[in-house]
Amino acid sequence: MGVDVVLKQVSRPGTSSKRRRLTQLDIVPDTDDVFARICERSKLPMLSRVDPYGDLILTAAEMPQLLEEVETERKLTTDDQERVLLAAVHHLGERCSTEPYTELHLQGD
C-alpha cells in the first residue's frame, strides 16, 4: 500500500483534453510503505489527503503547501529512512514548482 511520488510532464497538443499526454520524468518509489505511513499519521491538511489506494494529482500552484508540509514532517521525524524519503519527495516538489507543464502524482496501490 505504498504511495509512489511521480513527477510527470504534461503535453496537450491541440485543445482536446483527450489528447493530453503524460511523460514520467522522475519517481520516488515507496517500496517499504514509508511515505504512506507518514501521510496516514500526518495531521497536516495536504498530506492527510493522500490516499494509499488512490491517486492525488498536484500542480505547481499546490507545491508551496506540499513543500512546507513535507519539510515539517522531515523536521519532526527521527527516522533516517523517513528523512531520506521526505528529502527526495521535497526535491520532486521543487522541480514541479519550477519546471513548466509538470504535475506531481501521488500514486497509491
Rank of each mutant, 00 (worst) to 15 (best):
I27T: 08
G108I: 04
R19H: 13
L66F: 06
T72I: 11
S11C: 11
Q81M: 02
R21A: 14
S48C: 01
Q107G: 01
P64Q: 11
R37Q: 13
E73S: 01
A61L: 11
L22C: 06
L92S: 09
T72K: 10
D55T: 07
E69A: 05
S48Y: 00
V89L: 11
E40N: 08
K8V: 15
E40T: 09
S17V: 14
E69L: 08
L25Q: 10
D4R: 07
L85D: 03
P52E: 05
Q65N: 04
R37G: 05
R37M: 13
I57S: 00
R74G: 06
H90K: 10
A61H: 10
A61R: 13
D80L: 05
R12I: 12
L104S: 13
V28E: 00
T59Q: 03
G54K: 03
A60T: 15
V10N: 14
K43F: 01
G93K: 06
A61P: 07
D4L: 07
D109Q: 04
P45L: 00
E99A: 04
S42C: 09
E62H: 05
T15E: 15
E103F: 09
E82F: 03
L85K: 02
Q9W: 12
Q81R: 12
A60W: 13
L44G: 05
P45A: 01
P29T: 01
S11R: 15
H105D: 14
I27S: 09
R21T: 13
R37A: 10
K18E: 15
L85H: 02
K18S: 15
G54R: 05
V10C: 14
P64M: 04
E40Q: 12
P52F: 08
G93R: 06
D32L: 12
R41G: 06
S17P: 14
K75M: 11
L106R: 01
D51P: 03
A60C: 15
Q107T: 02
T77K: 02
A36R: 07
Q24L: 05
G2L: 02
I38Q: 01
L85M: 06
D4C: 07
L104E: 10
V34Q: 00
R74I: 06
T78C: 01
R37S: 11
E40V: 05
I27L: 08
A60D: 15
V50K: 03
R95Q: 09
P100W: 07
M1G: 07
M63C: 10
L66E: 08
S17W: 14
M1A: 12
S97P: 02
T98R: 15
L22W: 15
